[in-house]
């Protein structure tokens, strides 16, 4: 395989739970309009949440924000949210698939399910990010991303509204960047442009 090609990052996955709405508002509103990777997000929500969550962020974000559709092709510069009450997975042909399998870590969508399937597809070209949350979903997935040669970022627990999810991720594997919320976008942008943080 071409080494030069593999050096570049192809996608960002983000997992966030309790405290997520504020954290995501901050992250998504500071993403540059020319950001070159797709961003795929699992946010834990109540199963009966309305389907219009992405609308909440669309106004403040310069990139297109939408709910991921089944079989939809993943496009650069687009922000995707897992639909409430479905697991979101990535297929080899860079399309999304959905599943109503039982909740994982009491969650559907589950961060681990997205991270593990994205890692299978993107391998070393994947950036995984775990933000605020009150459980441990995402820890296993982030470890898998790291084991697959990908890059991992965790919100500094001291700056997280709910620190347990970042703390658990840090305990589960060696994290490349543990940074405050306000620095996460600049790290991702730099990685997406140069391949190094």
């Amino acid at each position: 395989m071409n080494k030069k090609y593999r050096k570049k990052y192809e996608a960002v996955v983000i997992g966030v739970s309790a405290g997520g709405t504020n954290a995501l508002k901050m992250i998504l509103s500071s993403m540059p309009a020319d950001f070159s990777l797709p961003v795929i997000i699992v946010q834990h929500l109540h199963p009966n949440s309305k389907n219009d969550m992405p609308d909440l962020y669309n106004d403040s974000c310069r990139l297109k924000v939408k709910q991921a559709d089944e079989k939809e092709g993943i496009v650069r510069g687009c922000i995707y949210f897992a639909p409430p009450n479905y697991h979101l997975l990535v297929e080899d042909d860079r399309t999304f698939s959905l599943s109503v399998e039982a909740p994982v870590n009491f969650s559907r969508p589950s961060i681990d399910v997205l991270f593990e399937s994205a890692s299978d597809v993107y391998g070393a070209s994947l950036i995984g990010v775990v933000l605020t949350g009150a459980n441990n979903d995402g820890s296993r997935g982030l470890k898998k991303i790291k084991d697959g040669g990908g890059l991992t970022i965790v919100q500094d627990p001291d700056t997280a509204e709910y620190p347990s999810m970042p703390t658990s991720a840090i305990a589960a594997s060696k994290i490349d960047y543990v940074v405050p919320l306000e620095d996460i976008v600049s790290v991702i942008v730099k990685l997406s442009e140069t391949g190094v943080g």
């Binding site: 395989m1 080494k3 593999r6 050096k7 080899d92 299978d120 391998g123 070393a124 084991d147 697959g148 040669g149």
Partner: peptide
């Protein structure tokens, strides 16, 4: 640079798919 770990993980993935 692609280190050994990446190669192994690619290989592992390919085998799993087969």
């Amino acid at each position: 640079m692609k280190d050994n770990k990446d190669v192994n993980s690619d290989d592992h993935n390919e085998n799993e798919n087969i």
